[in-house]
């Protein structure tokens, strides 16, 4: 079985066991200890962009040294003492949200989060450019996880943005809109009509459900998904409602079947 080392650490004065390689945030999430995050997603590589998840750490061997670290990245250590909320941490998170509110004054997500830290109006100079993007980079990471790698960050510093290569419709975009779905602030927009999906300057032709005609996904995505998963493209041509209806129809027509054993191979005609 598992040969990984078990590590014990202290969070807010309570002792916990963790596997080696887990981060502080992993343990806190498992134990239901709240730590706010904006750029974290369990399925994606952590990057530490938003700095909201900062916690204070110290260790009996560190001669009193303590400091803030991003819990989404800091690996657990034997004997580590973690504080997930105190005045310094609160103030850091408050300042970060204040800064983000200056960047995105119109984002309801940031407004709500900032209000939790007592910031309703930013104390800093508001951004001249209207944006809801906080540059958490989740969109770029999810696009990479999908395997498309269509978008990226471009530029530096305050002018950095999530961008398309050379500001043209990205050739690698498959139109899956995962970027838009994962964006915590709703900064990425797309438009669906029965015929096309418009995103990142593309106009993707939609595949329609073979039974009901409802749009399912862009053609380009279908090709991409079929190739990537090795499944027959037919898998992606029926919407889930129609798939279920087909199952029902199949069962109805073969109603004299005895029982359906779950967990065992089941022969059901598509």
């Amino acid at each position: 079985m598992t040969t990984e080392k078990t590590i014990s650490l202290e969070i807010n004065g309570r002792f916990f066991q963790a596997r080696e390689g887990m981060t502080i945030l992993d343990v806190a999430k498992r134990e239901g200890i709240p730590i706010p995050t904006l750029c974290y997603h369990e399925a994606l590589e952590s990057v530490g962009n938003c700095r909201l998840c900062m916690v204070e750490i110290t260790h009996p061997d560190w001669k009193g040294w303590k400091g803030l670290v991003t819990s989404c990245l800091y690996p657990v250590e034997e004997g580590l003492q973690v504080t997930t909320d105190n005045k310094t941490i609160w103030n850091t998170r408050r300042t970060i949200l204040d800064l983000l509110l200056a960047r995105c004054p119109d984002s309801d997500v940031i407004q709500k989060l900032a209000a939790e830290y007592g910031v309703t109006v930013t104390s800093y100079r508001k951004n001249d450019v209207e944006t809801k993007c906080i540059l958490c980079g989740l969109c770029v990471r999810v696009c990479a996880a999908k395997g498309a790698n269509a978008i990226s960050s471009a530029g530096r510093g305050i002018e950095k943005m999530i961008a398309r290569p050379f500001d043209q419709p990205p050739p690698d975009c498959i139109g899956c809109a995962s970027c838009a779905h994962i964006c915590p602030t709703g900064a990425i927009e797309y438009e669906d009509t029965p015929e096309v999906r418009k995103i990142w300057g593309h106009s993707f032709k939609m595949v329609k459900c073979e039974s009901c005609g409802r749009p399912i996904m862009p053609e380009k995505q279908l090709e991409f998904e079929a190739e990537k998963s090795g499944l027959d493209p037919a898998y992606f041509k029926t919407c889930s409602v129609c798939s279920q209806r087909k199952s029902i129809d199949t069962i109805r027509s073969a109603f004299d079947m005895k029982a359906v054993g779950l967990g065992e191979p089941v022969e059901v005609a598509r």
């Binding site: 997603h41 399925a43 995962s178 779905h181 898998y235 029926t238 279920q244 087909k246 199952s247």
Partner: peptide, 18 residues
Amino acid sequence: ARCIGCGLCSIACPFGHM
């Protein structure tokens, strides 16, 4: 926690169970 809500699984399931 890992799910990104892309909906691909429900389309791919041939039985409509997702």
